[in-house]
Write a protein that binds this DNA or RNA. Structure first.
Lengths: 135, 135
DNA sequence: CGGGATCCAAGTAGATACTG
DNA sequence: CAGTATCTACTTGGATCCCG
């Protein structure tokens, strides 16, 4: 009997890999911007500072919970600032930080690739699905 | 009583928004590449064609299920090809398509942003967490 | 107005066992 | 070798109600 079973070895490898992925900057970035609402919020804020209710209206499909949650996480990451004006009723403005703005060109290049190549991808999907259906 | 309740209106808005997001090329692309294993597989294949077992070894943390599932979806999208050699035992090779290769520069720019700016993001996180803990 | 707290439904990934 | 099939556990997001 080995000191460690095969199952234990596999588990260990998976843990190490998780650690590797967690420390990988590119992975972290992808996790961040791939969030459903992140790019929408960032793009909306690229037009300038906006209030919570403005964002809520522009990004029509988002729930209060997800909007708040996403805004908080972006604030935490230093990508936007949250400023509260303690009037009655309260007013909260969100604004991109310089760091947040550096992200915009990247989002733009993602958009460009998407507009250029996604039609091909969709065409490939249809072909694939047709063949599968025939078989 | 209105012909449609507030809840119904909200539901309708959410559906429309879902449809909008589903048809948005940039959203589709992000959904595709943000998958945990997609960029790993694509990057591995950038070195040239590889067998299933090669990929499985290089991407140590992936389960058989996810590797197969991800490879199939990438094949469906026309980003890579799957070729079976009916020997005994079977041999299956995966290879990037030209379309798949066009994705590599984009992945590279994501990597570049990440390496340049993620340290700042992480620093912002620590500051944010410290302040929260103090408060 | 701008949330916080809670509950719940649904999709998703991993482990395990089996196969042409 | 290169998968498929199934079951379970966990994560996630929406709905709802409440508050300063």
């Amino acid at each position: 009997m080995p000191t460690r079973t095969a199952a234990q070895l596999r588990e260990e490898a998976a843990r190490e890999y998780d650690a590797f992925l967690a420390s990988c900057p590119a992975r972290q970035l992808l996790d961040r911007i791939s969030d459903k609402w992140v790019t929408l919020i960032l793009t909306a804020l690229a037009d300038g500072p906006q209030r919570y209710s403005d964002l809520s209206r522009r990004i029509a499909g988002v729930s209060q919970k997800m909007l708040t949650q996403t805004l908080r996480s972006l604030e935490r990451d230093g990508l936007l600032t949250r400023s509260v004006t303690p009037s009655v009723p309260v007013r909260v403005d969100y604004e991109l930080t310089p760091l947040g703005e550096t992200l915009m060109p990247l989002i733009a290049s993602i958009k460009t690739w998407a507009e250029t190549h996604m039609p091909q991808v969709n065409a490939a999907r249809e072909t694939y699905d047709d063949v599968s259906a025939t078989a």
